[in-house]
Amino acid sequence: MNITHILDLLSYSFLQRAFIVGSLIAISSSFLGIFLVLRKYSMIGDGLAHVSFATVALALLLNTSPLIVSIPIVIASSFLILKLSEENKIGGDAAIALVSSTSVALGVFISSLASGFNVDLFSYLFGSILILSMMDVYFSLILSIVVVITVLYYYHQLFAVTYDVDFAKVSGVNVKKSNYILAVLTSITIVLGIRVVGTMLISSFIIFPTVIALKLQTGFKRTIALAVAFSLFSVFSGIFISIILDFPTGATIVLINALLFIVASLSSLVLKKG
């Protein structure tokens, strides 16, 4: 493989779309990751990804766009998880498990109703860059801009709530509103990400880059910037490697993240001992 081959590959429009959408998801998921990981909300991403499996099955059954069906239902599910946790009737982790397992069961049930779309559903389970359309690119662009601008606008509130929720409340921060903003943005990012890495792997997109960046022990804004860099690297290298070696793209991206995590963990161990 030389530079001409790489340039040839880049001339394919499906690959260009994959790079654009992958980069947009990398950026928006990294902007959210730090707030979710530090508030121990990482599993919300996983739970909502399972919800998106059911919504994709529903969209395919109704023969409509998975994006349009998924976003409102996943947002509503994130509100349900928050409501169940807030009212303290059941714990946050139990609320996620309930919503997520019910959704998977619904997804399986719906897919059994119409066996014709099982191949399509499989591509949404583990992602497929071949299914990205220009409409996906436009949607991803608009929604990623919404995610990034909202995080920047509410940055101080989100930071205050992440560091010390009680103090934030006493200082007049609307903690409930911050939680709901985070839930909406996470839902949007998850739905966007299932096109590239699939419902099974999207939560790692949110968690891995932030956890790797946290290993480098720098400031809050720098951690976000580093997470963006790691995420972009994993998307670009993952797409390239998967095309060249004919690997599944979503899985390759996640495994590159896992490798980066191992390297970052070992480096921080060595630095500590040094």
């Binding site: 730090i34 530090l38 920047l152 606008y153 509410y154 940055y155 101080h156 509130q157 930071f159 205050a160 560091y163 010390d164 103090f167 934030a168 200082s171 007049g172 921060v173 946290l214 022990q217 720098t218 400031g219 809050f220 720098r222 951690t223």
Partner: peptide
């Protein structure tokens, strides 16, 4: 919260600024 904060990725200035929370810009 001394022990919990050991790995929190923020500077002293960022923490003090949370006392001024309600700023809405970056």
């Amino acid at each position: 919260s001394f022990l919990q904060d050991k790995h929190f990725p923020a500077t002293v200035k960022e923490i003090i600024a949370t006392g001024l929370a309600n700023q809405s810009l970056f």
